[in-house]
Amino acid sequence: MELYFLGTNAGVPSLQRNVTSIALRLMEERRSMWLFDCGEGTQHQFLKSPLKLSKLEKIFITHLHGDHIFGLPGLLSSRAYQGGVTPLTIYGPPGIRKYVETSLELSQSRVNYELNIVEHEGGIIFEDDMFVVESAFLEHRIDSYGYRIMEKDRPGSIDPSKLAVHGLKPGPLFGRLKRGESIELEDGVIVHPEDVLGSPKPGKVITILGDTRPTPNVVPLSAGADVVVHEATFLHELASTAHEYYHSTALQAAEAAKEAGAGRLILTHFSSRYKDAEHLEPLLLEAQSVFPNTRLAMEHELIQI
């Protein structure tokens, strides 16, 4: 499980950074990738990355401002040309269906794979046997949402001493037990996964927030998360400006992560006034003064979860 930042700028692209898009690589977990927001130029950022559009399974849109969605029509159209033939689902606030369908219809774009669009207003929006995704309302100029991605607990490791009790040796039966299946031995004895596996391994929790002022929903969304991705559009000396434009400061992001008991904080969505690494450093130091385990999102950097 890895995060890859395709765009970290706020509002408009700059010479240094593109607008918002974040990939969550789940190659070991489900051989696929999820995308969070898709600002203009995201497909160009894909071309500079190790990511493959053919592996894209889901897109989660936080809100309908252009710097978070203007890249969608082009990316959807190009996906098939890059080997993307499997179904793709888009999740987003009400209005995302109209935006996508109208863009594709008026441009006469042909999407030759199954495209599903799920509009939501928070709550549990996806669940299967591996993951649960929950969404909650934030505070921005238009409806904006944060996403909490919860990996379900994974089976524990196989205990060799427990296998020996049943006379089991390495082989195909190992895989079945690891997947949670019971097996029948030649003598008719049934071996259940819990007979040979150690304690379950807790799943990871990742919180990716859309644009927001400080708001109560950030804390439950981020509670105990291994990683929280939070916007930090301004330094706290511009807190009044951040409030006026419905954004957060680096200090406010750190305060939220600390209150939530998060493991790590990654700052993104930087104002263009902070042009390069030198200008971004004060945001990092400001956040670290409250929440030391903070880092800046850097484009085309792969972060292990």
Rank of each mutant, 00 (worst) to 15 (best):
G7R: 01
L209N: 11
G188T: 04
E259V: 14
G188Y: 00
A223H: 13
N9I: 01
E194D: 14
E186T: 11
A225H: 14
L177P: 12
E105A: 11
K55R: 06
L53S: 05
V227G: 04
P200C: 02
L163N: 07
L51T: 15
L6C: 10
G71N: 12
G41Q: 01
Q108W: 02
G71A: 10
P193G: 03
S271G: 11
H63I: 04
E301G: 01
F5M: 00
A262V: 08
H44F: 05
E286R: 11
S272W: 00
A239V: 11
E181L: 13
D159T: 13
V205L: 09
L177I: 13
A23F: 01
M150Q: 08
T20I: 12
K55C: 04
I124T: 15
P50N: 07
K258P: 14
H166P: 14
T62M: 05
L56W: 09
R31L: 05
V133C: 10
A225S: 14
L88E: 15
L51S: 09
I190T: 13
D143Q: 08
S157H: 15
S289E: 02
A262D: 02
R213I: 09
K201Y: 02
E281L: 07
N217H: 08
G83Y: 00
G83V: 07
S248E: 00
K52D: 05
R179N: 09
S272P: 14
S289C: 03
V189Y: 05
G41P: 13
R154C: 12
G66I: 04
G95H: 10
D67T: 08
V205H: 02
T207F: 06
A277D: 13
G74R: 10
N217I: 05
S182P: 14
I206V: 15
L15V: 12
V133H: 06
G198V: 05
P160A: 00
N217D: 08
G175I: 03
S54M: 12
A277N: 08
P282Y: 01
R30D: 04
T241L: 13
G74I: 09
L56F: 07
E28I: 07
L56R: 10
E28M: 02
L280F: 03
T241P: 11
P13W: 00
